[in-house]
Computed example of a mutant assay.
Amino acid sequence: MPSDLGHALLGLLARRPSTGYDLARRMQRPVGWFWTAGHSQVYPELARLEADGLVEHEVVPGRGPRATKRYRPTAVGTEALRTWVAAELEPQPVRDLEVLRLWSVWLVDAEAATDLVRRVRAGHAERLAAYEADLATLDGVAAAHDPAAPDFASRLTLVGGVLTRRAALEWCDWMLAELTAADRP
């Protein structure tokens, strides 16, 4: 059974065969919007997936002195990914550093609290702009409306990101209003 990272890599490879280097880059964006892994984690995971018969590679010309491996999922790997996608979800632990800091914001003065909320808001605004830009690349793409196409799944996750970030901005604006109201006599 692949790890969560293994499933992420299988999902990327199901979209298109890739080298380890390409996978590491694609783990930054678009997958990095919702799941992260370092470059150093990709290659060992690919080796595990290959040892388990879930991916295979072909040697292709590369830029460096060593041959380059381009990976693709095997039929078993694709089936393992399908099974995982449809399986029951287990509750996920929540680890949100922004919310953890905001939970203790009462300990700092109003200026520091306002500064924190503004920084949090700026981060959400930046992410929203990136999601909207990525989503715009799918405008007019027929496959983005075909439930059997990778672009459809990309559109679903990007719309989810847009809606989530808009809600986060609304929350930040509310917090700023609360902080401003608290400063008034």
Rank of each mutant, 00 (worst) to 15 (best):
D4E: 14
L5H: 09
L5S: 01
L5T: 06
H7I: 15
H7G: 11
A8Y: 00
L10N: 01
G11D: 09
S18Y: 04
Y21R: 13
R25L: 14
R26H: 14
M27D: 12
Q28Y: 07
Q28R: 15
R29A: 05
P30C: 00
P30F: 03
G32C: 12
W33I: 02
T36A: 15
H39T: 07
D52H: 05
E58K: 12
V60R: 11
P65T: 13
A67R: 15
K69F: 09
A75H: 05
G77E: 10
G77L: 03
G77M: 09
T78C: 11
R82L: 09
T83N: 01
A86I: 07
E90L: 10
P91R: 06
R95E: 14
D96M: 11
E98M: 08
E98K: 02
S104A: 12
L107R: 15
R119S: 05
R121A: 15
A122L: 13
R127Y: 00
E132L: 10
E132A: 11
A133T: 07
D134G: 09
A136N: 09
L138S: 08
G140N: 05
A148T: 15
F152D: 02
F152C: 00
A153M: 05
A153Q: 05
S154K: 07
R155M: 02
V159L: 02
V162T: 04
R165E: 12
R165P: 00
W171V: 04
W174L: 13
A177K: 05
E178P: 00
E178V: 08
L179N: 05
T180E: 13
D183C: 10
D183N: 03
